[in-house]
Design a protein around this nucleic acid. Sequence first.
DNA 1: CAGTGGTCTAGACCACACT
DNA 2: GTGTGGTCTAGACCACTGC
Lengths: 265, 265
Amino acid sequence: MTTTPQTSSDSAALASVDLASVSPAPAFSPLYQQIKVLMLKSLQSGEWKPSAAIPSEIELAARFRVSQGTVRKAIDELAAENLLVRRQGKGTFVATHAEQHVQYRFLRLFPDSGDANSEGPAQRQIIDCKRSRASGEVARALRIHQGDAVLQVRRVLSFAKVPTILEDMWLPGVPFKGLTAERLRDYDGPMYALFETEFGVRMVRAEEKIRAILPDAEQCDLLKISVQTPLLSVERTAYTYNDIPMEMRRGLYLTDTHYYRNELN
Amino acid sequence: MTTTPQTSSDSAALASVDLASVSPAPAFSPLYQQIKVLMLKSLQSGEWKPSAAIPSEIELAARFRVSQGTVRKAIDELAAENLLVRRQGKGTFVATHAEQHVQYRFLRLFPDSGDANSEGPAQRQIIDCKRSRASGEVARALRIHQGDAVLQVRRVLSFAKVPTILEDMWLPGVPFKGLTAERLRDYDGPMYALFETEFGVRMVRAEEKIRAILPDAEQCDLLKISVQTPLLSVERTAYTYNDIPMEMRRGLYLTDTHYYRNELN
DNA sequence: CAGTGGTCTAGACCACACT
DNA sequence: GTGTGGTCTAGACCACTGC
């Protein structure tokens, strides 16, 4: 035990959670945080799969030898991080990029008028899908070595037949071995949903760096615009569990009839 | 009482919270949500002022005639929304835009290299500050009528003496009566902190619409750039309590040495 | 030391979904 | 009805802050 929780004189199942190092601070960790770590392991290991129900709060309380309230607090935090979804009367489920209300959870581009769904789903066109080697920039983002095998995908998304987004993606070669253009083309649904079902990689969060740029000749050609048309450059790094980067992506967004929406709190 | 909470047979202080209308659904509202509404009123009315401590959990529990746990859950949500800040051992405080760790809570622009503070505080230059009348667009954003009195402010922010941000702001005339260029110039700190102390207006959240644009001649002049330099257009609407818009702002960001950062969950 | 928020428990009952 | 998550309570003890 890393800590001495109160009344519970012997709440087991709480392996030392690698606080072995002689850190100056005692690093007190509340019980529910330790439970959270254990639950994260179950998610990461695949014991609990996307869209499946996890054990009930009562079962988990018994398994971890803590009260239901403590399990509840752990689940609350995981739900707040979008790793779990609670459904009253039904159970708690592992979040997934498929079967979600919004088609693209990480895409923040919306049409100027009408709601997000008014223009229907985007038309997707795979331009290229090939194996290549990581550049310095890509290697840094994916925390791999320069020259390591990566998969490179380029595609165009169109709304109402108007090319609007040009995306280049880089995926680490090892976990995504076997990904092909056909598979991307045939799959009907969010790309991140395919990653979950086919490769067991669940994207949990992402960071984006946004800039304004002018396109080069090739980009103009693909988006059918002039070199004078400013574009949003959206550079995204997406992470799985434990903050492990699993995708680097650069999107060029045409923002004459759409805008990138952000909410600040 | 709008609902019949469990064990607590007579938890008072819960005025009907205007659910008087004969809505089809019974609109069940848990106790802690009703407490939250009451606490929001105290914030809104100025009973609890920015940076001041609110009553302790035990006091609030007594005032509202509920258990400490219920008050706690209400405070938890308000803290999650950045309206309150909890400090163990000291108390719970009303959040403020002053005395915060980050100077500009809503500004998402960061330098390409070095951390946010490495370049020091921005140099601010007020270009203009005048009374005017709301255009259709501004009126819509601020939910006032076209032609209503507004205050218009234009300023330039520079980092390391390089002009980087050109901002135009529109503020509703009534709540911000008495705001002058001098007052803006003399105040040392975030503009939103001045709004709190001088006008009792606390910004709680904001929405931004981002596009890529090319500047016009006047904008080029102020930012000392060419007409060929693409800029980020960041259109922000900021809200106080109860989702009331209190500011419309358009910022043009130079993104050759800075980027707009966003985190997706 | 007293006072504050933070954690944990045990038990009760409510709202919701399925069967 | 049974089982799930959701709310609420009461009481205990811990961790942190400042007098």
